[in-house]
Every structure is written in C-alpha cells, then in structure tokens.
Design a protein around this nucleic acid. Structure first.
Lengths: 204, 204
DNA sequence: GTCATAAACGAACGTACGTTAGTTTTTATA
DNA sequence: TATAAAAACTAACGTACGTTCGTTTATGAC
C-alpha cells in the first residue's frame, strides 16, 4: 500500500492537529508518542512527517494557533465598546465564553509551555503578554477615571485572568449551571471586586 | 564502589523527593527520566529503587504529601476563627501565603493529575474535594447569614480558588510587590466581590 | 494521456526508557 | 567482634521512542 484513495493533505493535517491536541491534553506532550498519534489518525508513524516538521513544531502550532485565534476574537468582541465598565464587562463575557468550550486548548497552553523550546516559548509568552495587556489597559483606564479601585494593575489583571480561565478546568457543557449563569456569576464577582458596590445589570 | 561512606537512607530519600519535584516541574512527569533524577542526587539509576517503589509511586508521594500538608495547615489556620467574614479572611490569607512559596508543588499538582494511575488520581481528587469543601462551607454559612451574596456555592468557590491559586504561577519572591501587598489586594477583591461593599480592614 | 507531485507505505536507525538482578561495601545490633 | 541489614554499585533486559529513508500509489495540471 502507498497513497490511499481519497486522501487529502489538508484534511489529514487537520485530523493530526485535532488528535494531537486531545492526546497532549490526555497524556502530556512527552507522554504522547507519535505512534499513538499516527494510530489515532489512521497512519503509519513515518507518514506524519508529510504534515508536520517535528513533534515540537506540532506543539508550537497548536499553542500559537490558539493564542492567535484568542487575541483576534477578543479584538473583535471589544471593537466599538466604549468606557471601562462596558469594556470590562465585554472582556469578562468574551473570555469566559471563549474558554468554556476549549478546555483542552486552555490546559495545554497552561501546562505545556515548559515543553516548548526556548525560542518557541518566548514567542508564546510574548503573545500572552499581548493578550493580558488588553485587560490591563481597561483596568488602568478605569482606575484613572475613578471607576475602579485598582491598587496594582498587573497583579489585579493576573487575578482576574486566573479566576476566569480557571473555569475551563471544571466546566462541563451538561453541568448544573449553563454558560450564561456562569458568566453572570463571574461578572458580578469581578465587577463588585473592583468597584466595591453592586452594579445593576441589564439582564436583571 | 558500593555503599558510600556517610550515606543515610532518610537523607537520600528526601533528596530524591526534592530533586524529583523540581525535575517534574521543569520537564513534566513523562519528561523526567529516572536517569536524570539519579544524576541530580548523585546516584546510579538502579539505586533509586532503594528509596522508591516505582516512578509512579514517587509522583503520588509528592502530590499526596502536598495535599496532606496543605489541608492540615488550613485546619490549623482556621482553628478558633469564628464567623464567615473572619473565616473567609483567614482562608484567603492562609491559602495565598501557603501557595506563594510553593509554585513547584502547585504546578505539579495541577498539571500532573493526568499522569496518576486511576486509583491514585481518585485518591488525590478526593483530597482536593475535601480541601475545597472547607471554603464552600464558609461561603454557604455566610450566604445563609446574609453576609455574602453567593448565587452558587460550588462555582463561586472554584472561582475564588482559581484566583488565589493562580498567584503561584507568576509570583517571584523578589518581585515588585511583597507577599503582604499581594494578600491584601486579593482579600479586597474577594471580599468586595462577595459583599458588594468595601470592608474596612484592620491594616488600613 | 503524461508526468510531476502529494501522500501514503514498510522498515529500520540509534538512543533512551523503567526496571530488575546480583554484588559490594558500610552501618548498626547483639 | 560476628552478622544482619541498609545503601550503594555495575550490568543488563526488553521495549519504546522520534525520526529518516526509499518506495509505491493516487491526484491534478497541462
């Protein structure tokens, strides 16, 4: 046997990325063997190299792809939203909604930074800073306008991000609370935490 | 060569645990080889087996040891503290202080649960639930007394825990803010988030 | 219809892995 | 001081790893 009937490079590449994400999520980067990955997509191990350069390159693709999509989607969600209160509200809702359905991406991004080679890790770290800066800017503006109480912008933004991102580690789509309820709960926690007073929300 | 002069079993075992924690933190459980570990403590690979049963047993020892010490220390910190406000305050301060200096333990506990064999993972998960229940109890009591606004106890406790535990991922002892400032910032965030009003603190 | 290329195959290379076994030397007990 | 136990050694077992190589078959452009 050689090339299979109906085989399509882009579809195979996508299947490799999907199975790779799942296997790294389940076993870790070092714990996933390329033989396991090949079997998951129905290939021989060597055939993977028609679609990936190295195992390390696959990890970097997965992690950087997630960061790119995340930042791009955030910018779209914040476009046209004015004022620190509304922008923070939009940030919280976006970040939660985006992370609720991507628990594998989130876990891999947080636990496998150490498995990236130095240059790759530096690139991802820069992308994370870029994303975090958008929240920090909202907090700084709100603090300057007297809307938020922010004793320290970087630490406060880390605290908020940790709280929101943490949802990905326990959320189940068929769980007790639906996504909207979870978002509302976190928005209140964050808003009250920063303003020290209850904020009336449109939803009631 | 055989047994070394001055060698002491308990001291070697402790060195193995310390080096094992660091290596798992740096390379992950699968990424740490027992040959690396042996070299880190100045032994031949086979000699490790005088002190550990298997590589898996070492991981379980590290993770469960951390959870035991954490829960025990929390109970000591909460002993005699009365009332949900004071108990939440004590919980936040304790959890942060304990995690600030243990970033390796925290990371390993959060990222290597998947590397535990099923029985071991179940045991650790039970210990985590036991710890989390203590926070949930504080929140439930506070909500019943009308001190806290808690639309959902489990999700709120996850949110608070994620926020506090996240500090371990970026904190540096020689960083810009000292531990006390970080604790104060998070205590305010949590307290205002739950009460919707500013709480005067003893420290000002 | 020809033919370059894409996409798969089977087989292997060299290395590293967790673990076991048997041996040797130090320490502690009586 | 004899001796059992502790704690190290050397050596090796069988397996699995990431990756490379040459080959084979299907696809798509002219």
């Amino acid at each position: 046997m050689a090339r299979k009937a109906g085989s399509d490079g882009s579809r195979t590449a996508e299947a490799i990325r999907a199975a790779g994400l799942r296997l790294i999520y389940e076993h870790g980067y070092e714990g996933m063997s390329l033989r396991d990955l090949a079997q998951a997509v129905g290939l021989q191990p060597g055939s993977l190299y028609n679609h990936i350069a190295t195992k390390q390159a696959l990890l970097f693709e997965l992690v950087s792809g997630h960061m790119c999509a995340l930042t791009e989607a955030l910018d779209a969600a914040l476009a046209g939203v004015e004022g620190p209160l509304a922008r923070l509200d939009a940030f919280v809702a976006f970040h939660l909604r985006y992370h609720l359905d991507r628990k594998m991406e989130v876990f891999v991004n947080n636990s496998e930074l150490r498995s990236l080679e130095p240059d790759n890790r530096a690139a991802i770290t820069a992308m994370r800073r870029d994303y975090e800066r958008r929240l920090a800017d909202i907090l700084a503006t709100g603090a300057a306008e007297g809307v938020f109480v922010v004793p320290d912008v970087p630490v406060t933004s880390y605290a908020i991000l940790a709280q929101l991102t943490g949802v990905a580690s326990w959320y189940q789509p068929d769980g007790r609370l639906n996504a909207e309820a979870i978002i509302a709960l976190h928005r209140d926690l964050v808003m009250h935490g920063l303003t020290g007073r209850r904020i009336p929300t449109a939803g009631g």
